[in-house]
């Protein structure tokens, strides 16, 4: 007990000293009650931000996506804003794994393997264990069955708790802010079509819309009074079938393939997006605090 109290006291001491030294605001004397920063350029307050963005998905299993888009934000105060971000999945690049799967499984659908080796194929009468088990999961062109993000639209609230500046090589000085945001995301997806029977012949995609929470954090670097460069990380967790596989549905507990492709085959994934943006602020001249 005494040891625990000692540790608690030590921790309290650390945090107490943290506050006292990091803040360094004179609590008495002529500066009592004065703001922490005078003549602070209010880069956000009362201004509209229009920011073209480019976003990149992270940790993709089968396909990477580049999403050009834009963000429109109205800053109610210097620390609170509302807005909307939208992006379109314009570029989709298969990963090495996709290419590998394609190269290995391509010949499984050929009646006679192109190189004369491997397993002959005659679905659905094929007796090869490999071909039987992959028939419902792998189509002729693997990349054509992959789940993909078509668009994302997210109304969001942004909280900007931190305002500051940085110096680079003590030569370049830039105003910055750090912010967090959150809101719902409407995600347009294309996934392998639902099929309840004969799935070895159904590899087309169909569209659906997923609603998911989204949140993240970012930095803004104010290059000029009306211009800012931004870097932003965003998480959009939702379940989807990224590979177009039949992975679940059969007993026990639905953890085995059931030769059907449906919503049971969706896997929860913590989707991550990294965005770069260039924000233009209107009006062009920011206000200043007292």
């Amino acid at each position: 007990m005494r040891r625990i109290l000692t540790v608690l006291c030590a921790l309290l001491g650390v945090f107490a000293s943290t506050r006292a030294t990091a803040q360094e605001i004179q609590l008495t004397g002529p500066l009592a009650g004065a703001p922490a920063v005078r003549q602070l350029r209010l880069h956000r307050q009362g201004r509209v931000e229009i920011a073209p963005t480019v976003s990149f998905t992270l940790l993709d299993e089968y396909q990477r996506t580049i999403l050009p888009g834009g963000r429109l934000t109205y800053n109610l105060t210097d620390w609170l804003a509302i807005g909307v971000w939208g992006a379109f999945g314009a570029v989709k690049m298969p990963t090495d794994l996709t290419d590998r799967i394609q190269s290995i499984t391509a010949m499984r659908r050929e009646p006679v393997p192109p190189d004369g080796r491997g397993e002959p194929n005659d679905p659905p009468d094929n007796i090869s264990i490999n071909n039987l088990r992959t028939m419902s999961s792998i189509g002729p062109q693997f990349k054509n069955q992959l789940g993909q993000i078509d668009f994302i639209v997210s109304p969001q609230v942004t909280l900007i708790p931190f305002r500051g500046k940085l110096s680079i090589f003590q030569k370049i000085f830039v105003d910055t802010d750090a912010y967090v945001f959150g809101g719902p995301a409407i995600v347009g997806l294309s996934e392998r079509e639902t099929c309840e029977a004969n799935c070895f012949d159904a590899f087309n995609r169909q569209s659906r819309t997923a609603i998911a929470p989204t949140f993240g954090l970012g930095f803004n670097f104010y290059l000029a009074k009306f211009l800012a460069l931004g870097l932003e990380w965003r998480g959009i967790p939702f379940a989807w079938n990224t590979g177009g596989f039949d992975t679940r549905g059969a007993n026990p507990d639905g953890r085995f393939p059931d030769n059907k492709v449906n919503d049971q085959d969706r896997e929860f994934k913590f989707n991550q997006v990294l965005s770069v943006n260039l924000g233009v602020y209107i009006p062009a001249k920011p206000k200043s605090s007292e």
Binding site: R19, A22, Q23, E24, I25, P35, A36, V37, L40, D78, W79, P161, F162, R163, G164, K165, L166, S167, I168, F169, Q170, T176, A178
Partner: peptide, 14 residues
């Protein structure tokens, strides 16, 4: 190469 400071909620500086 980079050094800076932030004002948190316009109240404290780190």
């Amino acid at each position: 190469p980079i050094y800076g400071k932030f004002a948190g909620f316009s109240d404290f500086i780190f």
